[in-house]
Amino acid sequence: MKKLINDPKNVVTEAVAGFEAAHSDLIRVSQEPLFIVRKDAPVRGKVGIVSGGGSGHEPLHGGFVGIGMLDAAVPGPVFTSPTPDPILAATKAVDGGAGVLHIVKNYTGDVLNFETAADLASLDDIEVRTVITNDDVAVKDSLYTAGRRGVAGTVLVEKIAGAAAELGGDLQAVTAVAEKVNARVRSMGVALTPCVVPHAGEPSFVLAEDEIEIGIGIHGEPGRSRIPLEPADAVVDRLLQPILEDLPPASGDRVLLFVNGMGGTPQIELYILFRRAAEVLTGMGVVVARSLVGNYTTSLDMQGASISVLQLDDELITLWDAPVQTSALRWGR
C-alpha cells in the first residue's frame, strides 16, 4: 500500500484539520466531538441541514458544507458511521429555531445512529426530520443495508434541499423537497479496481486485470455482475439500462445527468462516459437540461464511476440553479 498518510489511525482527524485550514472562510471544525459546520451557523430562523457518514467518500459530505447546501457534516471513521454523540452535537450547532433536517444514506449504521441522535435532540426541543437516500438501483439489499443503498444521488438531494432551506422554506417544505429529489433520482456504478482502506492496508475486494464490477457500492460492496472489461460506451449502456427501466423518462422530459468519479478516475474518462449517456438520453427524446461531472461521491482511490439521472421540473431546476458556496460546489455568488 502506498498512501500519503502518517498513522492510519489519524487519517480522518488530520484530513479534517487540513480541510479546516484550507477552507476557514467557509467552515469551522469541532474536534471533540468531530463535526464540520458552516462558519455562520446557526442561522436564526433557517432550517438546519445535517448529513454525514463514514469518511473516504470526499468531498461528500464535508465538501458540501456552506451557504446553499449543508449546515453541518459529521465524518465517521473510514467507511464507518459516526456515533450519535457528534451527530447530536452537530444538530444542536445548526439549530436556528426552525428545526433540522437529517439527510442520511441508507446504510444500517448511519440510519440507526442518526435516528438515535434525532431522538436525543427531541429531548432538547429540537424538531428533527429525516430523509433517507436510496438511489442505487444495483441491488435491493446489500451487506450494509436493508433496501437500496444511498450513493451519489445524495449530492443532488443535499444541494436542492439546501437551496430550499436557504430561500426560507420551513421544515416541512424542505423535507418534502428532499423526498421529492430522492424519489426522482436513480444511480448505478462500476468499479475497475478496488479501493484500499488505510487501516486495512489491502484491497477491499479482488478484480482481475481484465475484469470490472457492475453495480458496485461506494464501500466496495459487490454489484450485479463481474464481467470482462468493455469499451466505455458499452459500460455506459449497462449502467443506464437499470436506471431507465426503474424510472423510465418520457420523450420531452428534462433531466439532470450526473457522472460521478469514484476517486481514481480522471476527468477525461468521466467526460467520455457523459458523452455516451447524453447521447442515449437525447436519442430517447429526453432533454439533458442540467449536468454535473466530477469526483463528488468517491470510494477512496477506487477507479470507477457512477451515473445518476434526476428527473427535473421547474421547481427543481430553480433550486439546482440557486447560489451555492461550498468548497466542492460553488456558483451563483
Rank of each mutant, 00 (worst) to 15 (best):
Lys9Trp: 00
Asn10Lys: 15
Val11Met: 03
Val11Phe: 11
Glu14Val: 06
Ala15Phe: 13
Arg28Ser: 13
Arg28Glu: 11
Gln31Ile: 00
Lys39Glu: 11
Pro42Leu: 10
Gly45Cys: 06
Val47Asn: 07
Gly53Ser: 12
Gly53Lys: 07
Leu60Tyr: 13
Leu60Met: 15
Gly62Asn: 12
Gly63Gln: 04
Gly68Ile: 06
Met69Ile: 08
Leu70Asn: 05
Asp71Arg: 02
Ala73Asn: 03
Val74Gln: 11
Pro75Ala: 10
Val78Glu: 12
Pro82Gln: 05
Thr83Met: 13
Thr83Ser: 15
Asp85Gln: 13
Asp85Phe: 09
Leu88Met: 06
Ala89Gly: 02
Lys92Asp: 01
Val94Lys: 06
Asp95Val: 08
Asp95Glu: 15
Ala98His: 07
Leu101Ile: 02
Leu101Glu: 00
His102Val: 07
His102Pro: 04
Ile103Tyr: 10
Tyr107Glu: 01
Thr108Leu: 10
Thr108Trp: 08
Asp110Phe: 10
Asp110Gln: 09
Asp110His: 07
Leu112Val: 15
Ala121Asn: 06
Asp124Met: 12
Arg129Met: 10
Arg129Asp: 10
Val131Asn: 11
Val131Leu: 13
Asp135His: 05
Asp136Thr: 07
Ala138Leu: 05
Ala138Glu: 02
Val139Asn: 15
Ala146Trp: 11
Arg149Ile: 08
Ala152Asp: 10
Ala152His: 14
Val157Phe: 06
Val157Gly: 02
Glu158Thr: 03
Ala165Leu: 07
Leu167Val: 07
Gly168Cys: 12
Gly169Asn: 11
Gly169Trp: 08
Val177Asn: 04
Glu179Ala: 13
Glu179Thr: 01
Arg184Asp: 00
Cys195Gln: 10
Cys195Pro: 00
Val196Met: 12
Pro198Glu: 10
Gly201Glu: 14
Ala208Ser: 15
Asp210Lys: 07
Ile212Ser: 01
Gly215Asn: 07
Gly217Asn: 08
Gly217Gln: 07
Gly220Val: 04
Pro222Asp: 07
Leu229Asp: 04
Val235Cys: 01
Val236Tyr: 05
Gln241Gly: 00
Pro242Ile: 00
Asp246Ala: 15
Pro249Ile: 03
Pro249Trp: 05
Asp253Ile: 02
Asp253Phe: 03
Leu257Ile: 11
Leu257Lys: 07
Gly261Glu: 05
Tyr271Pro: 00
Phe274Gln: 01
Ala278Asn: 11
Leu281Met: 11
Val287Asp: 13
Val288Pro: 06
Ala289Ser: 15
Ser291Lys: 13
Leu292Trp: 05
Asn295Phe: 02
Asn295Trp: 01
Thr297His: 13
Met302Phe: 09
Ile307Tyr: 04
Ile307Phe: 08
Ser308Ala: 15
Gln311Cys: 03
Asp313His: 07
Glu315Val: 14
Thr318His: 13
Pro323Asp: 11
Ser327Val: 00
Ala328Leu: 06
Ala328Lys: 02
Arg333His: 14
Arg333Glu: 13
